[in-house]
Design a protein around this nucleic acid. Sequence first.
DNA 1: CGGGAGCTGTCGATAACCTGTCGTACAACT
DNA 2: AGTTGTACGACAGGTTATCGACAGCTCCCG
Lengths: 249, 249
Amino acid sequence: MCRLCARPHGPTGRVPHYERVEKVRLLVVDDDPPIADLVATVARYEGWDAVTANSGEEALRLAGEFHPDIVVLDLMLPDVDGFGVLDRLRGSGTMVPVVFLTARDGVADRVAGLTRGGDDYLVKPFAVEELMARLRTVLRRSAGPGFQRSVLRVADLTMDEDTREVRRGDKLLTLTPTEYEVLRFLMRKSPTVMTKAQILDHVWEYGFGGRSNVVELVVSRLRRKLDDTGEPLIQTVRGFGYVIRQAAE
Amino acid sequence: MCRLCARPHGPTGRVPHYERVEKVRLLVVDDDPPIADLVATVARYEGWDAVTANSGEEALRLAGEFHPDIVVLDLMLPDVDGFGVLDRLRGSGTMVPVVFLTARDGVADRVAGLTRGGDDYLVKPFAVEELMARLRTVLRRSAGPGFQRSVLRVADLTMDEDTREVRRGDKLLTLTPTEYEVLRFLMRKSPTVMTKAQILDHVWEYGFGGRSNVVELVVSRLRRKLDDTGEPLIQTVRGFGYVIRQAAE
DNA sequence: CGGGAGCTGTCGATAACCTGTCGTACAACT
DNA sequence: AGTTGTACGACAGGTTATCGACAGCTCCCG
């Protein structure tokens, strides 16, 4: 038993939900390098191939060379404006799906209407896990025929990411948005232990100030909803973080 | 999946459109690339095969190569005029059904005369869901006599897309056009949760500016008509969107 | 061409709900 | 028993949803 992750080491059973033979190829376009890198890093951590571009020109060049499966595109770029990049992407015949990033007050209204095709958009500052969730959804859907529901499962707990239904056994649970996101993160990572900092960093917007005990609180609220039926699922790893998994015998 | 009525047959519940064995082949002809791409993207998102042409010449060439099952044809083209394209299509013996696009004030009356067959037309700017609905209808009808009605069903709520009759149980409901479209969209996507942005993007005309609470309002009006008999069907997913589905236990 | 009916979207008041902070009680390790 | 880390009740402020009221618009009818 490992002190850090509080579980036996060895081959784990975790298999990604979208089993692709080839890695997903992601192009991240944002003029703010830290943001672009953040997204790329998280994506790589998920096993994707990711490259970043900090300008419209670079983005178009990379799109031609790298042939991404999906693009994250900030609409506020220094040179070519985000819409211009989009037009030229589409104009060159690529039907690659795009997830847009936009400032809260900025071009939000102009963006509306871009999601029609199956693309999506997110307002800055966003939470990394939410971005990843949307990317997965867009990918799944644009994969065309044969996509199926994404259902996460841990023990008798299930989460359907399309219907947003969460069940413990047969019992339907009602979660708030934050609770939902934290639970999704833990379920996705299960049975790996996540530190509170990791949870905070992935589920809350980047730049979130509150270094408080929010995570503990949300977990506490989750437990009340999850565990009133059956044995505890979310386990505390003292001094480290939380895991969700079936209690070891 | 039935090739003719574009929806699932059999005793099971909802089966998505992409499970059809053969994809519908769609040719989109519009000199405005963003519009053509919009339509093509939405169609692909539904699992269709779509190609775009930005001129009459290209359209005729593609019609010969691609052999579409259905064509979306803008009547305002730079080179050959839309009617010319139509004539030459028909002249070459193709009976492929066509849905015309026209500007509001344009040649609306002349178009009306063209829609006798299985064809149809739509005024720009249109809502993508309405276009898709018409395409599905035209496809179904052009399959010849004895085509099958398209009836959407969620719990005891039914919507006949041909007669536009909506019933809750036996009770016939009277919906306004907007209410009808929103309800259709939700029923088609059921039991997946749709965000307000998605609803807005699909059901309202492209280019619609209203960043207000229209969606909430229409849902509110729908609920009043739907739910005065029986239990609530349209459910709010707070912080996310709306779904229509039978309330789980 | 004028009147009326119905449809649609804006605004604003109200209600319902969500979220993070604080503080204290509790549990685990040493 | 001391020390450190965790659980969670309670509360206040903020956010989001609901829906009545209203005005502009279109369409229809005479």
